[in-house]
């Protein structure tokens, strides 16, 4: 086991170093390195490329529009269902509140980061309220099926965004004092990515989890008993994908 570790640490070096002292030395060295690793406050991050900025721009715009839509869907559901089925009221209210929080968060990001909101916001508001209220008028199961469809699409979309944020945002990092470029071994893993990007990642993954929670809630409340379940969910999924495509661009 000791051998294995040693090979791992000094792999590029010659194999003659396979000894106990080598392992110790390696351990010491790595300790030294760890203490001198820089954290986020000691480094500067290089500029984002045009494409990286464009992606963030789109991400915030589409997520803002999406959360606006979700907010209005639950608004529509709440309007129709809350008085008919009092036992659903706290469930809907809880999901609605979370969506309002998501929406406010992205609103704040949109103004802070100078992102253009979607031009079609009035349309998203109307459409989303209509979708929420319309499916609720069909039946409470249909409303839950609508939630299932919407949250599935949103969850997938958040996951796609996270993949890009994880892979494509490795900007050069510089030492704040000397201005020298640093490589990955000289910085703490938490500082490899700027706070701006890592906060965004955390936000997106937290929101994704909450959206998927809503999905589970909807299934617990008999979403699958909606009569043309497949038809309803697939149609709504299609509409949502179309809306996402549009909101990213317009």
């Amino acid at each position: 086991m000791l051998r294995k570790q040693c090979v791992k640490v000094t792999a590029p070096d010659a194999l003659r170093n396979l000894s106990t002292s080598c392992a110790l030395r390696a351990a010491q060295e790595s300790k030294k390195k760890r203490t001198s690793k820089k954290d986020a406050s000691e480094v500067n991050y290089g500029a984002l490329s045009k494409a990286q900025k464009a992606f963030l721009d789109r991400l915030i715009r589409v997520d803002q529009a999406g959360e606006l839509g979700a907010n209005y869907i639950y608004n529509g559901q709440h309007t129709v269902l809350a008085s008919r089925y009092p036992h659903l009221r706290p469930v809907l209210q809880h999901m609605w509140d979370q969506e309002v929080h998501h929406h406010n968060t992205f609103n704040r990001l949109q103004t802070q980061r100078r992102v253009r909101p979607s031009l079609l916001t009035p349309l998203w508001k109307l459409g989303a309220f209509g979708m929420g209220a319309g499916t609720s008028l069909l039946s409470k199961e249909a409303a839950m099926a609508c939630t299932v469809a919407v949250e599935t699409v949103i969850g997938n979309h958040y996951n796609q965004q996270l993949r890009v944020l994880m892979n494509q945002y490795n900007v050069p990092v510089y030492d704040k004092k000397t201005g020298e470029p640093l490589d990955a071994s000289q910085i703490k893993s938490s500082a490899e990515c700027s706070p701006e990007i890592s906060q965004l990642k955390e936000l997106v993954s937290q929101f994704r989890d909450e959206e998927l929670e809503h999905l589970d809630t909807a299934i617990e409340h008999d979403a699958e008993k909606a009569v043309p379940y497949i038809l309803l969910t697939e149609a709504i999924k299609l509409v949502c994908k179309g809306a996402i495509w549009t909101a990213e661009r317009v």
């Binding site: 991050y45 500029a47 984002l48 900025k53 721009d57 980061r113 100078r114 992102v115 701006e196």
Partner: peptide, 23 residues
């Protein structure tokens, strides 16, 4: 949509970075 410049550096200033100097 390569020809539509709306979203990046086109009609409006795009994304404003807080931590990436020089962006």
């Amino acid at each position: 949509l390569p020809r539509i410049k709306l979203s990046s550096g086109g009609l409006y200033r795009s994304y404003h970075s807080q931590d990436h100097l020089g962006s």
